[in-house]
């Protein structure tokens, strides 16, 4: 009863009636405070920095900044490279996840650990590692340069590669989990119906793990979109060619925090918009 409510004796008869009915209703269990309180603290922790950005944002100049060609260029580059990186991650990551989940080979545990390495090492180190491997004088890059005249660093392709490096592990882990959780007897059923292993994979396994692939792809896309360290190290920073939004944000930070905030908000708004739109399309998939 709220402090201001009238005492029970003074309640009109119909109110007393509803109160009696209420007394007969099965009481819900105690409110789950032990779960709700940490949940709300966790949510606040995630949302508060975002609120900080919103409060400090120079709203008046938001529109004009959005129209700046450098900003549009960086945004477009970010969206296209993150999408390309996600596509590459799916193309390579799903078979890799399948290999990890469905086959037994010596050293599989080691391979799985290796797959997660990019999640653990600082992205800048990842960028240096990419340079050492695929750079002009890198392990493989040296041959690419010598034989085909292909030099990857400082190109949009390098941006995509850096993003794939950091994003693909998220996809592999998500899909591997889905594959392990999938009921393999459906694959057996398909085999008894005459499906070759390839057909089983395409028409039975993949549809079964589609939610896992979708979730992994969204994680990978988000990770690729926010990627900074490996990109700036491996692909460098050049507006229109390799300067993605996070790089633009970082450099804007050097001059004026306000413009960095605006750019961050643009990136956040666009990525949230895309994720929400996708989520609506794949309801239940995530």
């Amino acid at each position: 009863m709220t402090p201001g409510s009238p005492p029970a004796e003074a309640a009109p008869p119909e109110a007393a009636g509803t109160r009696r009915a209420a007394a007969l209703r099965v009481r819900a269990g105690r409110f789950p405070w032990p779960l709700v309180v940490p949940a709300l603290i966790g949510l606040a922790f995630l949302v508060l920095p975002f609120a900080g950005l919103l409060v400090r944002a120079p709203w008046a100049s938001l529109g004009t900044r959005l129209l700046l060609p450098e900003v549009r260029g960086a945004l477009w580059l970010s969206l296209t490279t993150a999408t390309a990186a996600t596509a590459v991650s799916v193309l390579l990551g799903v078979p890799l996840a399948w290999l990890l989940a469905r086959t037994a080979f010596p050293g599989r545990r080691l391979v799985r650990a290796l797959v997660t390495v990019p999640m653990v090492i600082p992205p800048v180190v990842g960028g240096v590692a990419l340079l050492l491997a695929l750079g002009r004088r890198g392990l493989v890059g040296g041959y690419l340069d010598a034989w085909f005249g292909v030099s990857l660093p400082f190109t949009p392709a390098a941006v995509v590669l850096a993003q794939v490096f950091v994003a693909m592990p998220f996809l592999v882990i998500s899909v591997e989990g889905a594959l392990r959780g999938a009921d393999r007897r459906y694959e057996e059923a398909a085999a008894t119906l005459g499906a070759s292993r390839a057909v089983v994979f395409w028409r039975v396994t993949l549809p079964m793990v589609a939610p896992g692939v979708a979730a992994g792809a969204v994680l990978a896309w988000a990770r690729a979109l926010g990627e900074f360290g490996a990109t700036i190290t491996f692909a460098g920073n050049f507006p229109g060619r390799t300067q993605t939004m996070p790089l633009a944000v970082y450099l804007a930070m050097q001059e004026s925090p306000e413009s960095a905030i605006v750019l961050s908000l643009v990136l956040l708004a666009v990525s949230l918009g895309v994720l929400v739109a996708l989520r609506d399309r794949w309801t239940g998939a995530l």
Binding site: L132, G135, P153, T233, A235, N237, F238
Partner: peptide
């Protein structure tokens, strides 16, 4: 026309050290 506008001097130096 640079290939990259590095975020700090160390990053620029690293690109030279690696021969990129």
């Amino acid at each position: 026309t640079p290939v990259s506008l590095e975020e700090d001097v160390k990053a620029a130096l690293t690109k030279v050290e690696l021969g990129e």
